[in-house]
Design a protein around this nucleic acid. Structure first.
Lengths: 233, 233
DNA sequence: ACACTCAAAATTGTATACAAAATAGCATGC
DNA sequence: GCATGCTATTTTGTATACAATTTTGAGTGT
């Protein structure tokens, strides 16, 4: 997970809070107070405040003046927007990666695929192992963006993935389209290794659209269910 | 310029600092100390620190622990990256805008074009009026992104434009391709008003590539000149 | 003249104290 | 019983004090 402990408290608090949010330990919609976090991490409020500022800029929490911070809740529309952008950025990054990947890069991607396969092959695996597979699958996209060589593109894509990761986890965990994603990842990596930028990009865009459809279908079902309950009462 | 004075000091400081950086009052590469800014704005260091945190997240300043903040300096490569992303995002946003624009939106765009024309027609205009024209030209892209309806896309594009705006200003001010940009803007707005998403997107992408070429050519010339001087000494 | 060391100054990082505002709870009136 | 208004508590916003670290510069020795 690349859990780097920086030398300043502010960075530690930022990393810790971000991890708690991304992994869903602090669920979306929950109110978070400075004193609370400061006490939990045994630091003063100052570094906590600065961490909140950065998280707000990341879009992971939203804060209104004098009303504190709330872990950002995504609605269906925000997901639609995020995936729309991801299709553009991820597609382009994958094209670039196909043109720029060194042998070491290709080996790295193949290793991540193998790790996914290994985790998928475990019989009667627990949620922990499912989470791990999802995480490696998401990291694959981060690494591809890194290989693209466009640092800004990499940063922006990571930002979007961070914002969605928790939802992707908790939602997709119950879906059974895992093998599809694995196959698509394998195809993308293949195209990159073959240096076929055009094919890699097309595959990546289709993959993002597929993920979007899965997530949106689930969220829509949830929403419909809530409406049904509301009408019934 | 949409100069909104928020109710908290932190936001005011953030806006003020951002404006100073974006307009080049604080030139790129210059070191900025907390005490300095705090004194200039007659506030304590606390809100200044928080503003810095956000600006760092925006990429407008870069800070290393215990070494303070420096206004981010863009090199040629960062511009290449930024324009590469802008081509994707701006192109897509323009496509969306062509499909989503209401009559009020179209009127707004046409008004901005007219304002550009008016500023361009002023005889013997000063730098101030040139700046204004550039600013409206950049704002046009922000507004198009807003009309697209994708809030996240709008936010990301504004972030990129903010980072580049100062450079675009100071560099392009000396170029004479203004009429080209005006004509391209007019064509884009025409396509949007006609509801021709495909054409609007294509035009927008070509326009971004054109801007990129202009900026990169200037920066390259500068860089070559510096190298020439270095070799001569 | 140059390099090196050590101390002093400046600057950031953190904690805490105080002020302002919002929320919550209670009491009062209808 | 419910709504309304006030107070009390909680929580954020800002300022300031202190600690830690980096930078600067003077001074000394070679």
């Amino acid at each position: 997970m690349a859990k780097e402990t920086k030398n300043t408290l502010r960075d530690s608090v930022y990393s810790a809070l971000k991890a708690m949010i991304v992994t869903g330990q602090i669920p979306p919609g929950s109110r978070v107070t400075e004193n609370d976090i400061a006490a939990r991490l045994t630091v003063s409020r100052t570094p906590v405040r600065e961490a909140f500022n950065r998280l707000e800029r990341d879009g992971l929490v939203t804060g209104r003046p004098r009303q504190g911070y709330v872990v950002t809740e995504f609605d269906i529309n925000m997901f639609r927007e995020a995936f729309e952008i991801r299709e553009l950025l991820d597609g382009h990054a994958t094209e670039l990666a196909a043109a720029a990947a060194t042998e070491a890069d290709k080996a790295r991607l193949r290793a991540m695929l193998a790790e996914c396969e290994r985790l998928a092959a475990i019989p009667e695996r627990t949620n922990r192992e499912k989470f791990q597979e999802l995480e490696v699958g998401i990291d694959l996209h981060r690494v591809i963006a890194e290989i693209s060589g466009n640092v800004m593109l990499h940063g922006m894509l990571c930002g979007i993935l961070d914002k969605c990761q928790h939802y992707v986890w908790t939602e997709l965990l119950w879906l059974d389209e895992w093998k599809i994603a694995r196959d698509e990842h394998a195809e993308i990596v293949d195209a990159i290794c073959a240096g076929d930028a055009s094919r890699a990009g097309t595959l990546a865009r289709a993959h993002v659209r597929g993920s979007r459809d899965n997530v949106l279908r689930l969220l829509q079902a949830k929403s419909d269910y809530r409406n049904f309950l509301a009408k019934a009462s």
